[in-house]
Computed example of a mutant assay.
Amino acid sequence: MATATRPDDLPSTEDVLALSGLEFMQRMKAGDLPGPPIGGLMNYRLAEVEPGRVVFRATPEFSHTNPLGTVHGGWYGTLLDSAMACAVMTLVPRGSVYTTLEYKVNIIRPVPLGAEVEAIGVSQHTGRSTGVAIGEIKGVGDGKLYATGSTTCIVMKMA
């Protein structure tokens, strides 16, 4: 999947509203739509999409560290926000959009630099006006739990 590198790479509002959230995410995974620029910056990519669930694969790099040399909390937050909110998105109907209202992250242990992880987002509820989801960051291969999160999103009918 290619990552958008300039505004013209992103789909138009009309194109977004013509697709359900699930169709949008499936087309992104298939490479028919570009991945978000933040994915390139934070080194993550969409790996799995199904109704109410998404998985991103990610590997933290030195550029994602804090002054102590460990992975910055914002990297965990960005990754979980993407996974949880996109899980909600997969259940948003055609003609609607969503955005994150709030999210919470619990960092359990540091992700080692260069270690591949999965961020798994699962929608617990997606209705006409709100979506609620949970997420986890786990090690690929060993399944070690690095962080958990929860989110509330607003769903807005646009068309």
Rank of each mutant, 00 (worst) to 15 (best):
M1L: 12
A4F: 05
T5E: 14
R6C: 14
P7N: 09
D8H: 13
D8E: 15
P11F: 12
D15R: 15
V16F: 13
L19S: 09
L19F: 08
M25R: 07
Q26H: 13
Q26S: 14
M28W: 06
G31D: 12
G31H: 07
D32C: 05
P34Q: 09
P34A: 14
G35A: 13
P36N: 12
I38M: 14
G39E: 03
Y44F: 15
R45L: 02
E48F: 11
V49I: 10
R53I: 09
V54Q: 02
F56Y: 13
F56W: 01
F56K: 00
R57A: 10
A58D: 07
A58T: 03
T59H: 02
T59D: 00
F62W: 04
T65D: 06
N66Y: 08
N66M: 09
N66V: 08
T70G: 13
V71M: 02
V71Y: 00
H72F: 06
G73W: 03
G74C: 00
W75N: 00
Y76S: 00
G77L: 01
L79A: 00
L80H: 01
D81W: 01
S82A: 12
A83Y: 01
M84F: 08
A85G: 15
C86Y: 08
C86A: 03
P93W: 05
R94I: 02
S96I: 00
V97Y: 06
Y98H: 11
K104P: 11
K104Y: 14
I107S: 02
I107N: 05
R109D: 10
R109C: 09
P110I: 07
P112E: 05
G114D: 04
E116F: 00
A119P: 08
I120A: 04
G121N: 06
V122F: 08
V122W: 05
Q124R: 15
Q124E: 15
T126Y: 09
R128D: 13
S129N: 14
V132N: 09
V132M: 14
I134R: 14
G135P: 11
E136D: 11
V140G: 04
V140H: 05
G141S: 10
D142I: 07
T151R: 07
T152C: 05
I154Y: 10
M156I: 15
M156Y: 12
K157Q: 15
